[in-house]
Design a protein around this nucleic acid. Structure first.
Length: 891
RNA sequence: GGGCCAUUAGCUCAGCCCGGUUAGAGCGCUACGUUGACAUCGUAGAGGUCAGUGGUUCGAGUCCACUAUGGCCCACCA
């Protein structure tokens, strides 16, 4: 198989993907009894398109899954999508309006839902397709959707169980009302955004005391129409005489009490606060404490209600203007000052939410939180990075009840039916209209119109996808899972709730097997080059599919992993992907070189370890990198693993080993060439396997090419191949020391040559002299490698007798390296450089001397550390001496 | 108001858990070389008071405290 000199990912990715699909390697083996490794994909919204966060998360999961699969685990990565109630309904509603100028109400519930399903069938697979292009090795035959019938059964079962335990209740509570979408949203779907507004000081006349006022400060004067009280702090001397009295609400002329409440901050505004229980969460609680009535002054579409009297029907903004004008007219507006405050904004519609009281369904969360907290305390669940544990526990310890009803159509309809008296009952199976109510016996008249929050299905994801509530073989085999990788913003919305659901609902399992995953990895947030969050609305996103088109999926994956530290945000710009592209190209060419040189007799890969030092060296390095990558992947330190591989492939294998092998390969048929070929094959084989979790497409192509060239290995997919076994015994300190010496010598000689600016014009020679005076030892140590050395640097190694009269001196590994100064050398520049080096060296030497002269150091430091420092000092002194002599010679 | 994270080369970031080589990498820049695996690659170089202050220690980029700056998360200041 001929390989192009430049890696072209697009020439291969599709074919590799097809081959994977055809082979079924991603599905767990039917009869496997190996320990399992299961990952549930965080289901992306069906309406979504792959963004960088997905790409990063997908890459991380795929690395883990491929690694575990290669290690022989019974591996399942289950994919799927989330029906995303609000988002999806909004998309189809918008489309309906754009195309037919119809609203969903005009179309009717049934027909509208049919439209959404139609849309889902047509567009809902897009994002999973994009995950495939990234190389995600999911078992696509098990793809799930949160609104499919099997999930509905699970959702119902969960609902009814919680209902039966009394954990679900309906109540009039203050909720976040999204006026744009016409539904309640949960606290976790609301963001606080600072908005520049005003603080209005409004006078309320005190009843029975003409001319006396109590002044309250508010940012939302229109809500005064819903006021049912005024509160002051009980210890506030200014108002003590007013507590218990009443004042008169302007416009509506309602009589409202003045109460004392210690949540009031005397230092803010006037120290008196209007209480609007119907439209402010804090006031709702204050109102409840003092028995104040709730007045709702808004309709569900955000306009003022009948309760607003003369302002009824106005928009909120217009009502504010008119209320302020009215107050001014009556002389009740004391003053207005500019004020910046936080306004709750719906994350779903990006419009301000209106806190208002409405009837919703809630789940009591406190009883569910306990086991979820215990899970991280007893080690059943580990969050990575660990600092998220505190965030997670804090949320659970202060968890508030979850508003689970949504006034939408697209979602799991709430399985509650009512009789004519409005007595609700939850049921696993639909109750027909007219059938008897299970508890009251009266006929059922209707089902609840609302649907459940999307998260009320996704919190069941880790087990509902496996068939729960049925005790299916899949559930027994794959639950609980091992790894969950997720974005931090859904730690509460999703992760914590899944843990709660696992402990609450999987009661057929012993408690220690209920936690839905044992490791939760919170991945980095992807930011743009300026450190801002990537978002569609800001237009600063980088489309991963564009990057895949330009650089290839493997390059995108590798770049992401190289850039991402655990839990540390990553700033991304397009040019960052160049790194991955260059690396994949380097791997490609290294493999290409190996394949071009594999023809001819070679040592068996399974045979004895080669004798030549460079072979032993690269196998030693391979053994180290194998251990490093394996340990890093086990610890989910993806970046460490990727870095280690990068350095090994580039700096060890390509820069040194391939160069050292060239001279032996050029020699043709001898033992050296045979050993070199055997080692090349061995190292490439293992390297491709180590790379596979990171760069699955390319490694698969090269693996196939290697085995075609090799002719004796079975044609197996790399994705189905085992993690390489590289024994730790291959680590060879002697070989590493010797090649290390060679590297230093070559580096030093080249360095001197570069700084003398001799270039290639003058024939060069280097002389190496050992500290004991003889050059023989070094030449012997380099042995055959002298040729390689010459090849690498076009240098000759001469014996001591041939020492040139005028030469520049350097030191490498304690050895003197002389480069004869023949030809035209800029001696001034050379002297300058040497002086600078000497200066730097002497500074460092001073540090070492000080350290060794320090009695505390000798007392406390480990003996080997002291010894190493002493060696270092000796080397530095020697170098100092040489540099001085050099300088003298030049002057 | 509470909490978390970051601050190291022109840029993007490692190193800190477990204190002890002359603080590293990639990109960019300079010089030289190679261009028969690599529209490249290699080698060398320039470039850093490790945000600041104080402390612990024989010794601090690394541990502790505080400060500054930037970012994020929670929270009922109207």
């Amino acid at each position: 198989m001929d390989l192009d000199p430049r890696y072209d990912p697009h020439a291969h990715e599709d074919a590799v993907h097809q081959a994977w699909m055809a082979s079924g390697v991603f599905a767990p083996a039917p009869e496997s009894t190996a320990p399992r490794y299961v990952v549930m994909i965080p289901p992306p919204n069906v309406t979504g398109a792959l963004h960088m966060g997905h790409a990063l998360n997908g890459t991380i999961q795929d690395i883990v899954v491929r690694f575990q699969r290669m290690r022989g685990r019974d591996t399942l990565w289950l994919p799927g999508t989330d029906h995303a109630g609000i988002a999806t309904q909004a998309v189809v509603e918008k489309k309906l309006w754009a195309e037919k100028k119809q609203t969903r109400q005009e179309l009717g519930r049934e027909a509208f839902l049919a439209k959404i399903w139609e849309w889902k069938e047509e567009h809902g697979n897009k994002i999973l397709e994009q995950f495939r292009r990234l190389g995600a090795s999911c078992d696509w035959t098990r793809t799930r959707f949160t609104l499919e019938p099997a999930m509905s059964r699970a959702v119902r079962e969960a609902f009814v169980r919680l209902w039966e335990k009394g954990l679900i209740y309906r109540g009039a509570r203050i909720v976040n009302w999204d006026c744009a979408l016409g539904t309640a949203v949960s606290d976790d779907e609301v963001l606080m955004k600072p908005i520049k507004g005003h603080l209005y000081y409004v006078r309320y006349p005190v009843e029975g005391e003409p001319g006396r006022f109590v002044t309250v400060a508010t940012t939302r004067p229109e809500t005064m129409l819903g006021d049912t009280g005024v509160a002051v702090h009980p210890a506030d001397a200014r108002y003590r005489s007013l507590v218990g009295k009443r004042c008169r609400l302007p416009f509506l002329e309602r009589s409202i009490p003045i109460v004392a409440d210690d949540t009031v901050d005397s230092a803010f505004g006037t120290g008196a606060v209007k209480v609007t229980p119907g439209h402010d969460p804090a006031d709702y609680e204050r109102g409840a404490r003092h028995g104040l009535p709730i007045v709702t002054i808004l309709n569900l579409d955000g306009t003022m209600s009948r309760e607003a009297g003369e302002f009824a029907g106005l928009s909120r903004e217009e009502a504010r203007r008119q209320v302020v004008a009215g107050l001014e007219e009556r002389g009740l507006l004391e003053k207005t000052e500019p004020y910046q405050h936080n306004v709750p904004i719906s994350d779903r519609s990006d419009t301000p939410v209106e806190p208002l009281v409405s009837e919703q369904w809630f789940v009591r969360m406190a009883p569910l939180a306990g086991p979820a907290i215990a899970a991280v305390r007893n080690g059943a669940l580990e969050l990575k990075p660990a600092r998220w544990t505190k965030v997670y526990v804090d949320w659970l310890e202060n968890v508030r009840d979850w508003c689970i009803s949504r006034q939408l159509w697209w979602g799991h309809r709430i399985p509650v039916w009512y009789d004519a008296d409005g007595v609700p009952v939850a049921a696993r199976m639909d109750l027909a209209i007219g059938s008897p109510h299970p508890t009251t016996g009266r006929p059922i008249v209707r089902q609840d119109e609302d649907v459940l929050d999307t998260w009320a299905s996704s919190w069941l994801w880790p087990f509902a996808t496996l068939g729960w509530p049925d005790r299916t073989p899949d559930l027994a085999r794959f639950y609980p899972t091992q790894f969950l990788s997720t974005a931090r913003e859904i730690l509460y919305l999703w992760v914590a709730r899944m843990v709660m659901a696992g402990y609450e609902l999987l009661d057929h399992l012993p408690p220690e097997e209920r936690c839905p995953f044992s490791t939760c990895y919170v991945h980095a947030t992807v930011l743009d080059a300026k450190g801002r969050r990537m978002s569609k609305s800001a237009g600063n996103g980088i489309d991963p599919l564009d990057m895949i088109a330009r650089y290839g999926a493997d390059a995108v994956r590798y770049s992401l992993v190289l850039l991402t530290r655990e839990g540390q945000d990553v700033k991304l710009s397009e040019d960052r992907f160049e790194m991955g592209r260059r690396f994949t190209n380097k791997v490609w060419n290294a493999a290409r070189f190996v394949l071009q040189n594999l023809a001819g007799p070679r040592d068996e890969p399974g045979g004895a370890r080669p004798a030549a030092v460079e072979d032993r060296w690269i196998l030693s390095r391979l053994s180290r990198v194998h251990a490093e990558v394996t340990a890093a992947l086990e610890a989910y330190s993806f970046n460490d693993a990727a870095q280690a591989l990068y350095r090994f492939v580039w700096n060890d294998f390509c820069d040194w080993y391939l160069e050292l092998a060239k001279s032996r390969l050029a020699a043709g048929e001898g033992a050296g060439a045979r050993a070199a070929r055997g080692t090349l094959e061995r190292v490439l084989d293992a390297t491709l396997r180590l790379l596979h979790p990171f760069t699955p497409f390319q490694s698969e192509v090269l693996w196939k090419a290697l085995h075609a060239a090799d002719g004796r290995a079975p044609a197996r997919m790399l994705a189905a191949t085992s993690w390489p076994a590289v024994p730790p015994e291959w680590i060879d300190g002697e070989a590493e020391a010797e090649i290390g010496l060679l590297q230093e010598l070559v580096g030093a000689v080249r360095g001197i040559r570069a700084l003398t600016a001799l270039g290639d014009r003058a024939p060069l020679a280097a002389l190496v002299v050992a500290p004991d005076g003889g050059d023989r030892r070094v030449l012997e140590a380099c042995g055959e490698r002298a040729r390689a050395l010459a090849f690498l640097s076009r240098l000759e190694i001469r014996s001591a007798a041939a020492r040139p009269p005028s030469s520049a001196v350097g030191v490498a590994a304690g050895l003197e390296v002389f480069v004869p100064l023949e030809g035209s050398v800029d001696l001034g520049a050379l002297a300058e450089t040497l002086a600078r080096r000497l200066d730097k060296l002497e500074k460092a030497l001073g540090g070492v001397e000080a350290k060794l002269g320090n009695p505390g150091f000798r007392r406390s430091a480990a003996p080997e550390v002291v010894e190493a420092e002493e060696t270092r000092r000796a080397e530095m002194r020697r170098e100092q001496d040489l540099l001085r002599r050099n300088l003298e010679g030049l002057r």
